[in-house]
Design a protein around this nucleic acid. Sequence first.
DNA 1: CAATAGCGAAAAATCGATTTATCGGTTAAT
DNA 2: ATTAACCGATAAATCGATTTTTCGCTATTG
Lengths: 354, 354
Amino acid sequence: MAQKEAQQRRPSIHDVASHAGVSAATVSKVLSGVTTVKPENAQRVLDAVELLGYRVDPLASDMRRAKRRIIGAIMPEFESEFFGQMVSELEGLAEQRGYTLVAASSRESEAREKEILARMHDWRVAGVVLAPVRNEHGPAAAFMKANGMTGVLIDRVLADDAFDTVSADSAAASAEVARALVGMGHRHVLVVGLGEQAATVRARLEGFRRTALELAPDIRIDVVLCESDVGPLRALLHDYFSKGTERPTAVYSLFLKGTLVALSEFRRRGWHCPNDISLVGFDDAEWMQVTWPAIAAVVQPVREIATNAMEVLFRRIEGEGGPPTARLEPCKVLMRESVGSPGSVPHSGGGDRQ
Amino acid sequence: MAQKEAQQRRPSIHDVASHAGVSAATVSKVLSGVTTVKPENAQRVLDAVELLGYRVDPLASDMRRAKRRIIGAIMPEFESEFFGQMVSELEGLAEQRGYTLVAASSRESEAREKEILARMHDWRVAGVVLAPVRNEHGPAAAFMKANGMTGVLIDRVLADDAFDTVSADSAAASAEVARALVGMGHRHVLVVGLGEQAATVRARLEGFRRTALELAPDIRIDVVLCESDVGPLRALLHDYFSKGTERPTAVYSLFLKGTLVALSEFRRRGWHCPNDISLVGFDDAEWMQVTWPAIAAVVQPVREIATNAMEVLFRRIEGEGGPPTARLEPCKVLMRESVGSPGSVPHSGGGDRQ
DNA sequence: CAATAGCGAAAAATCGATTTATCGGTTAAT
DNA sequence: ATTAACCGATAAATCGATTTTTCGCTATTG
């Protein structure tokens, strides 16, 4: 009967209080570590908590504070390794500090992004980690600003005048890619990008272009940008390669989907990496090291981004002032077999063993 | 000043009430669609809501009900396409019904799984979608049972005596793979599995074995199972292929990681699919269709699983009784280029164009 | 010896909603 | 004409904690 009771209704702080023969206020104080409680009473409370299996109801507990121990996370999607890892890291970090992470996917829609943000505002979240669909100038960031929310912007973002930002150092990574490709002798490279995410993609593009031109002023850099959606990219790339112009010796894709599409186009044409063409992509994935050839990629420092984002976010939550900061975390560039020197093997099939 | 006020403290239901000249109870009734309110007053409430930009605080609103409008989702990981899509679908479905989804990753740990569940119980979630690390007999499901939580088990699960289950029809899919491989002439197949997830993997294995033996009684089926962790799989597979025994003509991996490891082992040995060996994997991924060769895979019906899981979950939340159901959703098998007839080409390098 | 601190704990207010009980004021039924 | 039923709305209780206020009691001080 007591068993059944326990299953039906969870014990509240008052149940603990009456079992320990004290008031609810005292129980609350013991549990929150206030020291002005007589040791004897504290022990009785602890015993009662143990006996009843009492646990604080976070919802009720949060009720009375302005900032609730909830962190919101908004990602453009959940399907990729990058954002999957990101959410996983953020969740762990939030949990470490006794916060609950509520994650939502904006599904690459700015409208949805804002709606989700409004819902999180309804929850009175203490802070938000926002990975914007486009960039820091979207309606979501504006909403956060207008409502005095505290938050941090990550990934597709460079710097902001209202929020701290944390992202990968795209420009430096791209420069490294440029050094590698030029060093191997490439003098005609196609860069594939996504216009939508203006600032970040521009940083990647410019980082590449500047270093490449510096090292090899005669280099030819073609650019294929799809504006808003990745849908047309397949056709754009097809057209590009179908034109009579000279085929580039390497392709540098500025985002994962572009790497996929490029690979798919190579397949269609029967081109092999790296003999027929070299390929490097921004964003690494697990499969890239098991395919043949392994695909060279820029590895984004997910853990570092997550850690720093949470750190700066919690500092703001705790009331730290000062101008917004803009962190750039260094990437790692993994030059795998999909990259080689141009013309070393006269356009044929079949890759070589390691 | 009114501006500033609005930014600092969000309007509560009492603010709306006083603006509309009614009581808080009336506001609550209007907002929840109770019809016993004088139309004139209802309109004034609506106007006040509009004017103040009032939105219900979900936390306060949930306070007074036993089941809160929160759904918990526990996945073994967030990094794979499968679970990423799953969370995304679940989130959308929960949102549609006015619920908030709180997702957490158990990181493939049963201990963590139970802890997360306890935390969700603290939140008094209305229901839980649990994708167990191992199977339906773990400590997490036991915890849910012991605490009278309502929930649904998905993915690595076949059937349960306490909870509804929804998962992919592994056995049927494996049978189809068997038909395809046998039909192409394969008589020696290696199956790679993960022992930890007993029931599901057994279903996949038995589904394959039964059909294969039925169609070709002389078929040889080798099995490499790694018990608890995927770590040793690489070594296990290496050993298997290093033994002097005859090389199988096809490999069927029962889980994604196994497919990756198999591919990696092929790479190391310089074997090409499908000429040197064929490969089919359970679980599809976006990259599998752009690699060369494209990798054949069993596509799990993520959306269907998510939809049915949520449907049955909400029925239970609304109090529907009856014995637990066990749904199996059919998979699609995509036979791509990594599969071919054995011996059609005498073990050489280089794949052929489509 | 009266007044004042100081301590530990209980009582009460609070957070923001929902739900139940209560209450005037009509209208219908006896 | 008195009571009953009803309608719309308000006051009050409730959910489960935290925080502020109050209070009783002992110990210190002028």
